[in-house]
């Protein structure tokens, strides 16, 4: 720990130098001004491999101040290795910030794969780590052409992908990274959040920032902005169902809640067990039950 503190002294607040942070902030402003548009930026080298959340990390480091309270989650959990490492890196390089596991207490939340169950507030910002920012990459290999397609809001080929999905599987099978149209124009890859979380983007009170470090792109869903998952009139977008074979909504094995996104485990005795994916949500439900 002493060695870490020493290292800390050698770096400016937030690890990145002020110019780098300024550039990221300017990029964020542009991303907010053009909702859903992937703004290119000069993603910095971070002391971790690209693909481990460097895009989200640069966003967090650029916007966080000493008065802020940070929460870092990975797959809904604050305790997973990735979340722990990112959190300690930010703590180490941002002197004076507070960290928390409690969604309510945080005003900056960096997340991978989930948006908290608890509805976010206007004074909160959620930063999502993005591996592949461009939803069109599956239908068009050329970035030049993709840019034109975005500019012209030409997403028919993405819709064809959905069409083919329904033809083959009778439903839209995309489970994560569901293409979502922001403010009636740009379609974004909302990062690998489950379908369950996509509706939370729509008219979100909190600012949603998305950063792709390896792909050097930042984009945003500003507060109170429409976010509409692509779908057909007669085959609407649906979130994951957690009903059992009898049509009963499954509930969390731990807290008993039947409204949250559930993870499936196999218990030590071999049967399937379901638990809240959002660990803070689960904790809160337990507290409410007085346990």
């Amino acid at each position: 720990m002493t060695a870490m503190r020493k290292a800390n002294a050698a770096y400016p607040f937030g690890f990145l130098d002020e110019y780098a942070k300024k550039e990221v902030r300017r990029t964020i402003l542009k991303a907010i001004a053009i909702p859903g548009y992937q703004v290119p930026y000069s993603s910095r080298e971070m002391p971790m491999g690209r693909g481990f959340g460097t895009g989200g990390l640069q966003l967090t480091l650029s916007i966080i101040g000493a008065d802020d309270t940070l929460k870092v989650i990975d797959q809904g959990s604050d305790d997973s290795v990735n979340a722990v490492n990112l959190r300690s890196f930010i703590e180490m390089t941002c002197d004076g910030i507070d960290t928390t596991d409690i969604t309510d207490e945080a005003n900056v939340i960096q997340s991978r794969h989930r948006i908290p169950e608890k509805p976010l507030r206007e004074d909160q910002v959620i930063v999502l780590q993005v591996p592949y920012p461009d939803p069109l990459v599956v239908v068009e290999p050329s970035e030049d052409k993709r840019k034109i397609m975005h500019g012209e809001a030409d997403y028919s080929r993405l819709l064809v992908k959905l069409y083919e999905d329904i033809v083959q599987f009778d439903e839209i099978t995309i489970s994560h990274r569901y293409p979502t149209r922001i403010n009636d124009h740009y379609v974004i890859d909302p990062s690998p959040i489950p379908r369950w979380d996509v509706p939370k983007l729509n008219q979100s009170k909190a600012l949603v920032l998305l950063g792709a470090g390896r792909e050097k792109k930042i984009y945003a869903v500003p507060p109170y902005t429409d976010a509409e998952p692509l779908a057909f009139d007669d085959v609407p977008f649906r979130v994951e169902s957690f009903n059992d074979e009898n049509g009963q909504r499954r509930c969390c094995d731990r807290c008993g809640d039947n409204t949250s996104f559930l993870d499936e485990f196999t218990s030590s005795v071999g049967n399937k067990v379901y638990q809240c994916s959002d660990s803070d949500w689960c904790r809160e439900q337990l507290v409410a039950k007085g346990e």
Binding site: D154, S156, L159, Y163, F232, D233, V235
Partner: peptide, 8 residues
């Protein structure tokens, strides 16, 4: 779809 037909 290019012609904005959105009904599967």
């Amino acid at each position: 779809l290019m012609n904005d037909l959105r009904n599967y």
